[in-house]
């Protein structure tokens, strides 16, 4: 069983890196989905074979101990610097602390499992999700869900609650 990610700090990170338009409820759903994903992650798992390449590829070693350490490190640094917890900082100050590790990544978000920092893993997990895609376009695209063939031709319906440009 992997060591669980410190939930309070993870939620404080989420507030800094996920869109405000998700609101508390949507953000909680995104964090819970990330936690479930993280719990199910299998280190050094066999990956899909690349086309016409005889080599077998495996995913990397377990990133979670590193992520736990990063979240604990954020709390410790915050305590030393400001005498309070990471979640007690305002969002700009939290971003200030996350800017250093995130600054080394990009421009793409990459895949969550290969993210060097837990904040990046959370972002990659959310922004590549069907939920985020629908929010971006303001449409019910529901990518990679069983949708039937009937609706394929029509313009995707508008997303209840808005989103989109």
């Amino acid at each position: 069983m992997p060591v669980p990610l410190p939930g309070g700090t993870l939620r404080a990170v989420a507030e800094a890196v996920l869109p405000g338009e998700l609101a508390a409820e949507g953000r909680e759903r995104a964090v819970a989905a990330f936690e479930r994903w993280s719990e199910g992650l299998e280190p050094v798992a066999e990956l899909s074979h690349p086309y016409l390449v005889p080599e077998v590829r495996y995913s990397g070693p377990d990133p979670r101990p590193g992520w736990v350490a990063q979240l604990e490190g954020l709390e410790k640094e915050c305590e030393s610097r400001y005498g309070k917890g990471f979640g007690d900082l305002d969002v700009p100050a939290r971003r200030g602390m996350l800017a250093r590790p995130l600054g080394q990544a990009g421009p793409g978000l990459g895949s969550p499992a290969s993210a060097a920092h837990v904040a990046l893993a959370l972002m990659a997990h959310f922004y590549t999700s069907p939920v985020a895609t629908d929010l971006c376009y303001g449409r019910v695209i529901a990518k990679q869900q069983c949708r039937g063939l009937e609706g394929a031709l029509g313009e995707p319906a508008a997303l209840a609650g808005g989103g989109g440009p």
Binding site: A16, G106, P107, L109, T128
Partner: peptide, 19 residues
């Protein structure tokens, strides 16, 4: 046209800015 972490100037984007 995928979501990204930094914009064309290399500036880090956060939350609503990414959207």
């Amino acid at each position: 046209r995928a979501p990204r972490l930094t914009n064309d100037d290399g500036r880090l984007l956060w939350g609503d800015e990414i959207m």
